[in-house]
Write a protein that binds this DNA or RNA. Structure first.
Length: 114
DNA sequence: ACGGTGACGACAG
DNA sequence: TCTGTCGCCACCG
């Protein structure tokens, strides 16, 4: 084919969305883990940038992606600043001061693909 | 076509 | 522990 974006047919954004959709209910993951899983561990910022555009699509559980400390850094991009927290708490996360307390317990590594 | 942007992460002090 | 700084790079106007 004439067009080859990177080495795939799919844009980086699309790959990110594919991963995010696979996050199990009640689990969360991080921008860095997603980036690493895609083979570009230094592109965590791009993952965040991709999530910024995820509102244009549906069925993308963007609230399940937090930063490496379990901090809800993207909460302001939701429909109201507390929606992200409410969604996560509804899935069993314990959040205090915008930080997931049981972060290690519900962290999902995309590499496990389960 | 090109450079600013950014929901990050690692590291230094 | 906490804060600031720097490198990172795909996207979009």
């Amino acid at each position: 084919m004439t067009k080859q974006m990177n080495s795939r047919n799919e844009s980086f954004f699309n790959k990110v969305y594919t991963i995010v959709k696979k996050i199990p209910h009640g689990k969360v993951t991080t921008y860095g883990l997603i980036a690493r899983h895609l083979g570009t561990s230094k592109s965590a910022r791009i993952v965040g940038y991709a999530m910024n555009s995820s509102h244009k699509f549906s069925n993308i559980p963007a609230h399940r992606v937090v930063n490496r400390n379990g901090l809800l850094t993207g909460r302001h991009h939701f429909f109201g600043s507390s929606l992200m927290q409410e969604l996560l708490e509804n899935e069993g996360a314990i959040i205090i001061d915008n930080k997931i307390k049981n972060f290690k317990d519900i962290l999902w590594d995309p590499s496990t693909r389960k």
